[in-house]
């Protein structure tokens, strides 16, 4: 159903013929950041997580001294199941560590094989963020392209492609992902591929729907009438105007991909231990929970929760303005 906007807001043309509409353009992302707390929080968190991932990746791949974890996230310290220091001691410990060069404490404790939980929690973005970002981007690029072709050229071939995409979408997501990852060997790039396959149909559907609604718009017919060949109509006119739903969706898809990555590790069908990965950490700490050793699972969980929420907040902010 359509909602006619209040006619009073629709057009207040002044004498020069310029309609006064509150403008929303690129520059406004920055203003939005300053004005909306939720959006600002989301952006900041996402930036922090990206930075953490980048530090760790640069260290691992190029050997740069960018590692900021106090302990090696993959090597046990020998102190098993140490609880975190009480909050009251933190200021003193901080001063000691930073100014007196004392050995850093296990801020978040250690797990039952002696790995430092804090180091692993801040090293994990390298796994979680990489998987989620790459998977979401690959599925978006793939899905947008297929969606554009299927929405613009309507024939038997594209109809078949759509049916296959629909079929993929009707699969139980979690089980499909488990099968794809577990049977292909639980490597990081297999997880990326599995997630991209699972999420691509969403983008196909979104883009196709948008392309189809854009295709009947007047400017597309105008583009033809002016004398554009079909491929130019598709790529120069329809595509740039059909990207917005996908761009909004990509933010929440990254969030969902993080959830799925960690969920897979949690059930034992994700990355292999001892890779620092939030879901895996929660899973390893799970049996200790009923023994009262809460710290092994709680910190990585808070990290997931905040990160996913941040992506949702960013996605919502974008949707509000451009959806």
């Amino acid at each position: 159903m359509t909602i006619t906007p209040g006619p009073q807001v629709a057009a207040t043309a002044d004498a020069s013929g310029v309609v006064v509409i509150p403008k929303r353009r690129r520059i406004d992302i920055w203003r939005k950041y300053k004005e909306e707390k939720l959006f600002a929080f989301g952006c900041t968190m996402v930036a922090i997580m990206l930075l953490l991932a980048l530090c760790e990746i640069l260290h691992l791949e190029l050997g740069l001294p960018t590692r900021i974890t106090p302990y090696d996230p993959n090597f046990a310290t020998g102190n098993v199941s140490v609880p975190p220091p009480p909050l009251a001691d933190w200021p003193g410990l901080l001063v000691d560590t930073i100014f007196n060069g004392a050995k850093p404490p296990h801020w978040f404790g250690t797990d039952n094989s002696g790995l430092d939980v804090f180091s692993r929690t801040i090293a994990a973005p390298r796994t979680d963020m990489t998987i989620a970002l790459v998977a979401a981007l690959v599925s978006m690029l793939l899905g947008t392209f297929v969606g554009l072709i299927c929405g613009f050229y309507r024939n038997i071939a594209t109809e078949v492609v759509m049916r296959i995409s629909d079929l993929l979408q009707s699969f139980p997501v979690f089980i499909t992902a488990m099968v794809l990852v577990a049977l292909s060997g639980r490597q990081v790039w297999n997880i990326v591929l599995a997630l991209a396959i699972v999420y691509a149909p969403i983008f196909v559907r979104l883009t196709r729907a948008e392309v189809m609604s854009q295709s009947v718009r007047g400017y597309v017919e105008s583009a033809r009438a002016v004398g554009n060949p079909e491929w130019k109509v598709a790529f120069r006119h329809v595509l740039p105007n059909s990207l917005i739903p996908s761009l909004i969706q990509v933010s929440s898809t990254i969030g969902f991909a993080i959830l799925l990555t960690s969920g897979l590790s949690f059930v034992g069908a994700g990355v292999r231990p001892p890779t620092p990965e939030w879901g895996l950490m929660i899973s390893l700490g799970a049996p200790q929970i009923i023994l009262g050793e809460w710290w092994q699972s709680i910190f990585p969980g808070v990290a997931i929760s905040l990160t996913v929420f941040s992506f949702a907040a960013v996605g919502h902010g974008l949707e509000e303005d451009y959806g």
């Binding site: 718009r217 007047g218 006119h237």
Partner: peptide, 8 residues
């Protein structure tokens, strides 16, 4: 008139 011009 609005619809027949590319919005971007």
């Amino acid at each position: 008139p609005l619809d027949s011009l590319n919005p971007r």
